[in-house]
Simulated scan of single mutants.
Amino acid sequence: MIRIKNLSKLYQTKKQQVQAVDNVSLNIEQGEIFGVIGYSGAGKSTFVRLINRLEEPTNGSVVIHEKDITKMSTNQLRKKRQKIGMIFQHFNLLWSRTVFDNIAFPLEIASVSKTEQKKKVQELINLVGLAGKENAYPSQLSGGQKQRVGIARALANDPEVLLCDEATSALDPETTDDILDLLVSINKKLNLTVILITHEMHVIQKICHRVAVMENGNVVETGDVLDVFVKPQSKTTKRFVQQLNPLEYEKENLVEFINDKEDSEVVKLHFIGNNAKRAVISEVAKKFDVEINILQGSIAPTQEGAYGTLYVEINGDKKILEETITFLEGTGVEVEVLRHV
């Protein structure tokens, strides 16, 4: 649906060149929520602005529905942008206009009739949960309500793609979750492709199907969210995953809980998808003559299913320990034996 190939952006100043985006290639499928995550300066916001040519690329191409955005004339691009919605971190509302008039603004530009405007705007107000706020001004709204207006406005011309540039960064955690739930609902109802830029792994975890990790203008890792969470490859990705469960990466904290008997193993278990619901520890306790000391664990949902980790110390006869670990591996749970924690 969206094919991005060798996309680059080079800024030239009097003193130096800055490579904001460096030869990025990605394929984003119709109807998916695709996350792009990176720390400040990674190039992610420049990248998303290249998609609708708010920034002109130095090199590369962006093809949406078989149409190359980078080769379009000014008039062609103006029409195409009506099908590329965008929401921003700081809302970018027109403060002298009501909620209704803010949402109607793109329709006015597209020369939609007043009758159709009224019908469409009311549908969008209901969709984003702002019924009763039609005549309110932005100054009378909460941050979450302002972003709902921004989302409704971005949907006014029935876009093919919705670009979200740090859309929840200015919101508190509870409001952030409400907006993310709204984006998931819109994605499902409209089969709308969403590209979401963020620096928060919680946002990626909660709503994205796939993710690309950016660093210094490059994509250093990409894949299904579940795969990236369970087996992060790059240092940057590991730092982001650590945001969700800091204790997991501080294994020295486990030492004080380990009995450290002579015949024992410390094991890290990865539960993915339906395996996260399985009572594996209970099965082991019933089947084998071992003692199990649970050291630490966590579980989290993603759009592709739940994943979790559990650290346990298993004490018992050496042969039985081997049989226990073999049994665990046979359940579909990923097993990592940590002999030196």
Rank of each mutant, 00 (worst) to 15 (best):
K5L: 04
L7Q: 04
Q12E: 12
Q17W: 01
D22I: 00
S25W: 10
I28C: 14
G31L: 05
F34D: 08
A42D: 03
I51Q: 03
T58V: 11
I69T: 06
T70F: 07
K80Y: 07
Q82C: 10
I84M: 11
F88K: 01
F88R: 07
R97I: 00
T98P: 03
S113Q: 05
K120D: 00
L124D: 03
A131D: 15
Y137R: 11
S142G: 06
S142C: 11
Q147T: 07
A152M: 04
L155I: 01
L155S: 00
A156H: 05
E166K: 04
E166L: 06
D172N: 14
D177A: 06
L180A: 07
K189V: 09
L190V: 13
I197W: 11
H199L: 06
V213S: 01
V213I: 14
N216R: 13
V219W: 03
D224C: 13
F229P: 01
K238F: 06
F240A: 07
Q242R: 15
N245L: 13
V255N: 13
K261P: 06
N274L: 12
V280N: 00
I281P: 02
K287Q: 15
K287N: 15
T302M: 14
Q303P: 00
Q303W: 05
E304K: 12
V312W: 09
N315P: 00
E334I: 10
R339N: 12
